[in-house]
Design a protein around this nucleic acid. Structure first.
Ligand SMILES: [Mn+2]
Ligand SMILES: [Mn+2]
Ligand SMILES: [Mn+2]
Ligand SMILES: [Mn+2]
Lengths: 219, 219
DNA sequence: AATAAAATTTAGACTAGCCTAAATTTTATT
DNA sequence: AATAAAATTTAGGCTAGTCTAAATTTTATT
């Protein structure tokens, strides 16, 4: 069994590698976990001993298949718990993260299987992120940032890049939510800010920064 | 905020004092927590510093009002989670304890309030134990052990003393559950074992040992 | 009241995780 | 290729929580 702390390291490494590089640096992990590089070095030695990561001093780290499985299981639990909080209890999507950070470390295969069943086997979490299956298989996301599209494009919101409560509440306030349709009415030349139409009803102006953090697929 | 470990010590102290004495000994705590007396002594010093227990060397411990509040809150969470597992997920009453031991340490007032609401504010847990309210107020139990009653008495099962999976499964197998009616048909002189009638339908023989572990109220 | 037994605490050591400061290695720049 | 800068690791130390063995205190028994 892995400790709470080890699980957090593995998840951090997974997330840092996920999109970008093939190995991740000590400093990047330290940043992510909000700890110091020296502490990370210590932990990397331990995780390497347990065959959870590939690690050679000074050369960066990657997850072994075994480590990846652990990481994906933590992510699975995190996302299922978030879904539970939003769907079954009265949590908003900006309130779930911190609690899920704790719940993801509860050890019980039966519990997570039952929660999955209770939620009717959801495929994505409240932020549109895919939920890995029991075997750690992950649906790959074909969504792209709204900032990649052009005037006239009709899109559906499928996720967010920034998961901060501040950003999520801004979306709420602006009338934006997962599944909503967006049509790009105009892109302002000067600063690339956008005028969009939401669900064929309301017009909204958003900055490029905001657009970058909204994930969409073409309708 | 108190650590996972501190919470477990406070809960153990609460439970040891609950019925019996006014103070609890170091060894009793060590037994309960499955740790050594020396470790308990260390922790008692810490809990006393935090004003969670009354403690003078060699003289036993009791909880301060502050410590009692923490203990009761952990017990509240434990029992609500057990109720959730049984009522909303497909857990049996003999399967919930270990998971609830983990879940009781999740820190989130909103979460536990929502679970309470979701369950429609239950008063007792799946084992018939009362659930403390948000302020740590506890319904006192007027139930007594089945071994205290006599031939002809008609009773209702309200709880159990032994919470072990083995005992709980034995009750399942014997057709006994909370809320069921029991009529004592006969008490065998020799070993005080009982013949009982369950819900006016089935007859069952149980040992004195089993009777001691079944809590009932008179109908 | 003295002594033996039991309970409890203290001493000293260990592991997990974390830290700062110093040493080492890698990478970037001249 | 040499040197400077940045990244990383190591050294040494700290806290929480645990343990064994030794010392101390309380309780039980003579
Ligand atoms: Mn999250
Ligand atoms: Mn999420
Ligand atoms: Mn329990
Ligand atoms: Mn219970």
């Amino acid at each position: 069994m892995n400790s709470h702390t080890e699980e957090n390291y593995l998840k951090a490494i997974y997330k840092l590698i996920e999109h970008d590089t093939d190995v991740v640096t000590t400093n990047a992990i330290a940043d992510k976990i909000k700890t110091k590089a020296a502490s990370v070095s210590d932990m990397l030695k331990k995780l390497a001993d347990k065959k959870l990561i590939n690690y050679q001093k000074y050369q960066g780290v990657s997850l072994t298949p075994k480590g990846q499985k652990v990481a994906l299981n933590i992510i699975r639990k995190h996302r299922l718990w978030e879904m539970f909080l939003v769907e079954k209890l009265d949590f908003k999507w900006d309130e779930v993260h911190d609690v899920a950070e704790q719940l993801e470390h509860i050890h019980s295969d039966k519990l997570i299987a039952e929660i999955d069943k209770f939620l009717n086997y959801p495929k994505v979490d409240p932020h549109g992120d895919p939920i890995p299956d029991v075997n750690g298989k992950l649906q790959l996301q074909k969504s792209k940032s709204l900032s990649n599209f052009s005037t006239g494009d009709i899109l559906v919101i499928t996720g967010v890049v920034d998961h901060s409560p501040a950003f999520l509440r801004y979306l709420d306030k602006s009338g934006l939510a997962l599944g909503f349709e967006i049509k790009i009415k105009e892109i302002i030349e000067f600063d690339k800010s956008l005028q969009i139409m939401i669900n064929k009803k309301n017009t909204l102006f958003i900055s490029l920064e905001v657009a970058k953090n909204i994930l969409v697929i073409t309708k």
